[in-house]
Nucleic acid binder design. Structure first.
Length: 281
DNA sequence: CTTCAAACCTGTGGGC
DNA sequence: TGCCCACAGGTTTGAA
C-alpha cells in the first residue's frame, strides 16, 4: 500500500480533477451518499497530498475532505495515458485539467472500495473520520511501540490474532504477521497474556523490519494483482521466510515449514524455531 | 464491552 | 477437455 501511496504522490498530487466516472455496485458501498454525490464533490477539486495509515490510503482535497481508498485484496491504482483502453476490472477513473495521465482504480475481487470522508483530528493527526479507529502503523512517525505492546497485551486472545487487529497496530496482514512471528521465534497461537513485554517489543520490531525490507524491494507481490501505480510487481516475495513455504526447509534450521488452517486462511511457521505453547491446541 | 466466525468476491489451479 | 471445489486475502457485520 505504501508503494501505491508513493506512486499517487508522484503522479496525481497537485493536479486538478476534470472528470470522474465510477463503475460497479460495490465500489462506493462505503460512500453512503452515492455515486452522484461522489462525482459532484470530486469534480474540479485538486488532490493536495497522498497519505496512508495501515492499509488505508487517502488523498486530501483542497476543501478539507479526502478521497479514501482501501485496496482490499485486489485493488489497484494505475496511472495510464489519457483515453487508454479500459481494463476488465476498471471501477473508477479520473481525468485532469492538464490532460496528462488518468488515474484509474481497478479491482477484481471487489473487496476494495472508495469513499469521500471529512478529515478530523485524532490523537494529533488529521485522518478521515471513518478510519479514526485504525491504530497508527509502525512506519508512522507518531508510532509508540510501548503503547502498541500494551495494546496487544491488553487483549484476551492469541498473539497472531492480536497482531492482525488493525485497532491495536495497523498495516500487518497475514503475510507480514507470519514473517514477524518467524523472526521473533514466536508461535502465533501463544496467548497474549503469556507474551512478555520484551517479547512484544521484539515482535513489533520484527514486523517493522519486515515491512521496511519489503518496501525497499518495491513491495510483496505474491499475486500478479499486487502492483504499483505503473503496474509493476515488487520483489519481496522471494525474500519471504515462511509465508507460502509449506514443507520447504526453514531458512534458519532446515526443519520443514508447517502450514495450518487459520481463520479461513493459513498460518505458516517453523515447528522447531516457533514451538507451539503448551496450552494451545 | 470483547471476541469470534461468517460473509463479501472472483480467478486460479488441483483433482477427478 | 471440462467440471467442481478449495483457496487466497482484509474488513465489516452480527451473534454469543
Amino acid at each position: 500500500v505504501e508503494t501505491v501511496r508513493a506512486g499517487l504522490q508522484r503522479w496525481v498530487v497537485g493536479r486538478r480533477i476534470k472528470s470522474v466516472a465510477v463503475a460497479g455496485e460495490r465500489t462506493l458501498r462505503r460512500h453512503v451518499a452515492g455515486a452522484d454525490d461522489f462525482v459532484a464533490r470530486l469534480t474540479g477539486r485538486r488532490f493536495a497530498a497522498a497519505r496512508r495509515r495501515g492499509k488505508y490510503l487517502w488523498l486530501p482535497l483542497d476543501d478539507g475532505t479526502s478521497l479514501l481508498a482501501h485496496l482490499g485484496m485486489s485493488g489497484q491504482f494505475l496511472a495510464v495515458p489519457a483515453n487508454a483502453a479500459a481494463g476488465k476490472h476498471l471501477r473508477a477513473r479520473w481525468t485532469f485539467d492538464d490532460d496528462g495521465p488518468e488515474l484509474r482504480f481497478h479491482d477484481q475481487r471487489t473487496f476494495g472500495g472508495l469513499a469521500l470522508a471529512e478529515l478530523v483530528e485524532a490523537d494529533g493527526t488529521l485522518v478521515p473520520s471513518t478510519i479514526a479507529h485504525i491504530a497508527r502503523d509502525p512506519m508512522d512517525p507518531g508510532f509508540d511501540p510501548d503503547r502498541a505492546v500494551r495494546a496487544l497485551r491488553s487483549r484476551r486472545t492469541e498473539v497472531k490474532r492480536a497482531l492482525l487487529d488493525q485497532t491495536l497496530v495497523s498495516g500487518i496482514g497475514n503475510i507480514y504477521a507470519d514473517e514477524a512471528l518467524w523472526r521473533a521465534r514466536l508461535h502465533g497461537t501463544r496467548p497474549v497474556e503469556r507474551l512478555t513485554r520484551a517479547q512484544g517489543t521484539v515482535l513489533l520490531a520484527s514486523a517493522t523490519e519486515v515491512m521496511a525490507e519489503a518496501l525497499r524491494a518495491g513491495g510483496t507481490s505474491f499475486d500478479s494483482l499486487y502492483v504499483n501505480i505503473n503496474g509493476q510487481s515488487g520483489y519481496f516475495e522471494r525474500s519471504l521466510n515462511v509465508y507460502g513455504r509449506g514443507d520447504r526447509p526453514c531458512r534458519r534450521c532446515g526443519t520443514p515449514i508447517r502450514r495450518e488452517p487459520f481463520m479461513n486462511r493459513s498460518s505458516y511457521f517453523c515447528p522447531r524455531c516457533q514451538p507451539k505453547p503448551r496450552s494451545s491446541r
